Computed example of a mutant assay.
Amino acid sequence: MNRNRLTYATLSLLTIALGLASRRYQAMLPTWVGAYVGDALWALLVFWLVGFSWPRWGRRRAAVVALGFAFLIEASQLYQAPWLNALRATTPGRLVLGQGFLWTDLLCYTLGVLAGVGLERLWQRAKAKTS
């Protein structure tokens, strides 16, 4: 696989915008969207960033690394060191590291990475048909 870095940078920025919007306008969205979509988008962003960073990796490897990273970040929320909590109290720290462990987040991360895998597959098939 050979990913286009410009495409993955664009996808990353779009995903960040959607994720921030899902939090900012949470009150206007259905409850389940406000509660879960931001976490799925966060994991999707991680998948895009892995694809951007290692464009020649296969889809499966990128997905495993992205999901592993997301799960490690979630597990790190079980560790409540004062310095880490201070970092989590900042906006960037909260966005990247989260605040509290939730089992449902693991499902959201899985769905977000699977969405990235599915979108890549669709683009590859569409690209193959036009070639």
Rank of each mutant, 00 (worst) to 15 (best):
R61H: 07
P82G: 05
N2Q: 13
W54Q: 01
W123H: 07
R125T: 12
G98T: 08
F69H: 00
A62S: 11
L14T: 11
F71S: 07
L119D: 02
K127V: 03
S22F: 01
L95V: 12
E74A: 08
N4V: 02
L78A: 07
V64E: 04
L78E: 04
W32A: 10
L41M: 04
I73F: 03
A66C: 04
L122H: 08
V50E: 00
T7C: 02
R94A: 15
A86P: 09
A43H: 01
N4Y: 06
L114N: 05
A128V: 11
Y8D: 11
E74D: 07
S22T: 11
A17G: 09
T15H: 07
W54G: 00
L111S: 02
G58R: 09
K127Q: 13
A9P: 06
A128K: 15
D105N: 09
R5P: 07
R59D: 00
S12N: 04
R61A: 11
R23F: 11
I16H: 04
R94T: 05
L14K: 05
G68N: 06
M1V: 09
W42P: 00
L114Y: 08
F47C: 00
F69P: 00
L45K: 01
L87P: 06
N4I: 04
A21Y: 09
L107S: 05
G58S: 09
L49A: 02
A81H: 12
G116W: 06
V37H: 02
T104L: 11
T15A: 15
L11W: 13
A63K: 01
A128L: 15
L41H: 04
T110I: 09
S131W: 07
L6T: 12
W32Y: 12
G58W: 04
W54R: 05
A89R: 13
W83R: 09
V117G: 01
R60E: 12
L107T: 08
A75R: 06
W57T: 04
G34D: 10
E120A: 10
Y36A: 03
A63P: 00
Y109K: 06
